[in-house]
Write a protein that binds this DNA or RNA. Sequence first.
DNA 1: AAGTGGTCTAGACCACGTG
DNA 2: ACGTGGTCTAGACCACTTT
Lengths: 241, 241
Amino acid sequence: MNTVEKRPVYLQVRDQLADKIQSGIWLANEKLPAERQLSEQFSITRVTARQALVQLEAEGLIFRSNRRGWFVTPQRINYDPSRDIGFVSYVEEQGFSARTETLSKMLIEVPDWVAEQAGIPEGTPVYEIFRRRYINERPCLIEKIYLNPKNCPGILQHSLDRSLWHLLRTEYKLDPYERHIEIYPQTLEARVADALAVNTGSTGLYIRRLCHDQNGEFLELDEEFWLHNAMKVVVSVTSNG
Amino acid sequence: MNTVEKRPVYLQVRDQLADKIQSGIWLANEKLPAERQLSEQFSITRVTARQALVQLEAEGLIFRSNRRGWFVTPQRINYDPSRDIGFVSYVEEQGFSARTETLSKMLIEVPDWVAEQAGIPEGTPVYEIFRRRYINERPCLIEKIYLNPKNCPGILQHSLDRSLWHLLRTEYKLDPYERHIEIYPQTLEARVADALAVNTGSTGLYIRRLCHDQNGEFLELDEEFWLHNAMKVVVSVTSNG
DNA sequence: AAGTGGTCTAGACCACGTG
DNA sequence: ACGTGGTCTAGACCACTTT
């Protein structure tokens, strides 16, 4: 690499790789050359090549898939956690394909922290649902949902691969009145990372949505673990003034 | 390090360091031992020690300050970008101190991308304000604000180190009616990273807020670049049903 | 079997921050 | 001047995926 520049070598490599992506030479989901190949090409160590790749990963330009290689990250989708229209149709409106997969569903005793958040007594039964969602066949998000069985008895008999809120509205006449939403970047815990086929400890975006009805009764607690580069949160808020 | 465990060494080190933080042996803002000291202590290379530290940084447990060392991250504050109550009082309510510093303020021709976002003609004059905000004397966020001078002529003569929206409300009788908010993780560009005394390319959380009044006229565009570990976004949305 | 990333060693020099 | 993190080299072995 050029040593006249004072910008660190790994950032110079980053720039050249970023160029290939931003100029469209490498397209979305395309595989990058192997690390050893890059290090030879730029006359640097594999460590340095990796440093450039990790940097691009942090920026969201590329992602890695287990031990298969590095790939160009597709465009972010927009996502509005305050709305409950179907995920699939919402994503498809933006020109992507989407799919939901139910990983497990069962009736359990409410976990303590959920009880506390939801404002319901400890030991109450709740439905727990795990789902995985894909955008263009790439797993982008794991969802953990806790539902109040009082409001939607027998919901586990339905297919949960479609819009949950469509089901809640049409079958149970439920409507969320108030939503408390929390959002922050966080690394993905092992189980979630595995389910998304990324490394443990990679960056994610955590979204928690707590819904109550008009009487202040607990409806749903939804936890979402997103790949950090897969989306943008977009919310519109109108004053009630 | 123990080689019987199959968990990678750097994660074992991470666990031990994380323990010291979570059990309160190391307190918020406390400096960690030097990298060379850690590598000796755990009988590992400095590279591996750094891997553990970078992991903890990604998790938000520690942060680095230029070449001074690694420090324990203080607790996240809550932040509601949909509200315009003063930042300082909002943070102080949570038991932290806060401070705002105006880095620059001027009247400029609107940048093209701002014009597009705000829906105003290219070339229109706008006020541009850069501010830096501290929580417990730690710089946590850089803010770029674009204001429509039509609505708040002469605002640059005021001190902007206090709540901007307090000023807009009391002096100019302005009230935001609709806010479009975008949130996503992104690495901090060089200038912003410098201003926050962190490394170029470190993870941040980007928040954009676009405010219009009841007539659909552009009021404010606000861009915020946060340290990724400094806060949680907390929004409440109530149905207007 | 071959190729890929994941982890790790044992050094080195540099740039910057702090005394 | 010294201690700190920031960068970089030149290898090695392992675990998993793909062919």
